[in-house]
């Protein structure tokens, strides 16, 4: 029982960041129909910026995280403007190849800038864990979970309660019609990509002090973000949020009760099952056909 509770707690903490990664990716896919392979690199970028700002530059921890996220938003906007805008109307495969190229280029740039040795981000929380009964968790991880939940809430508010959110959702459903309604599609694309990238950078910046920062950290993250998105259904934002938590739970319980050596494989086995049995994702809205 103790072990069960510990696994649940671990999964919930991890699930929050998976959800951040997932909704960023699914938003970009939903609005722009772009399979964003640079997602993991934005995560890495967020982590390195957090390291740079909090470590060598000595900024306040929370301010450092905030700026790291904003820089992620900025980088996302730049990538959209420089790489994706000229490719509007190009075949999806072409865009995908360009994004894979960008992924490799960004990763090598990180390696060139930071070297291969892992970096550690200092953090202000006590390292003594909080112990509740037989379950324990680091204060830092609680902060990561809370920050992820706040970001998720803010994101939902923006999407559902603002004019900008309506515009995004309209573009999501039909770019042509929404452009007739006066939505500036190009602007929407840049903003969408910037926000999606910012969410990835936020996940990276938040997890940087929990883990260590290395140039290849984004590879597995890109795969996992896709896993989350496929679980929830491509372009389904609520699905991606729940998918994030489901993936974390599956991994944690798979590792805890089946075989820890296959921890990362378990998530992908789950995806294969979903694709076989319910290819539109676990939470696909029923009314959308054709």
């Amino acid at each position: 029982m103790d072990q069960l509770l510990q696994h649940v707690l671990n999964a919930v903490v991890l699930g929050g960041t998976y959800a951040l990664l997932g909704i960023g990716l699914t938003l970009i896919f939903g609005v722009m129909k772009v399979a964003n392979f640079t997602h993991g690199e934005l995560y890495t970028f967020g982590a390195y910026m957090a390291y740079l700002l909090i470590g060598p530059l000595g900024l306040n921890f929370f301010l450092g995280l905030l700026i790291a996220v904003l820089l992620g938003v900025l980088l996302g906007a730049v990538i959209e403007y420089v790489l994706l805008r000229p490719l509007q109307g190009a075949h999806m495969d072409t865009v995908m190849l360009v994004m894979i190229g960008a992924w490799i280029a960004l990763q090598n740039l990180e390696l060139l800038t930071w070297g291969g040795v892992a970096k550690s981000v200092p953090q202000p929380f006590p390292t003594e864990p909080l112990v509740i009964g037989s379950v324990s968790v680091a204060p830092l991880r609680i902060f990561v979970l809370l920050a992820a939940l706040v970001l998720l809430a803010v994101f939902y508010l923006i999407l559902n309660r603002t004019k900008f959110g309506i515009a995004i959702r309209a573009t999501f459903q039909d770019p042509d019609v929404s452009s007739l309604m006066g939505v500036k599609i190009n602007q929407m694309f840049t903003l969408t990509f910037a926000i999606g990238s910012g969410l990835a950078a936020a996940a990276g910046a938040l997890l940087a002090p929990v883990f260590v920062v290395i140039p290849i950290m984004g590879d597995l993250v890109t795969l996992k973000a896709f896993a989350v998105v496929i679980l929830g259904g491509l372009g389904n934002i609520v699905g991606a949020t729940i998918g994030g938590f489901i993936l974390a739970l599956a991994e944690e319980f798979g590792a805890g009760y089946i075989d820890s050596g296959y921890r990362d494989a378990i998530g992908f086995i789950l995806i294969i099952l979903v694709l076989l049995l319910k290819p539109q994702g676990l939470f696909a809205p029923r009314e959308r056909t054709g």
Partner: peptide, 20 residues
């Protein structure tokens, strides 16, 4: 006896098991 993939970053599941 627990195992982890070389690029795994979250080892909490393995450690929870080891703790028990």
């Amino acid at each position: 006896v627990e195992r982890m993939t070389a690029d795994a970053t979250d080892l909490s599941a393995q450690l929870a098991k080891i703790k028990q």
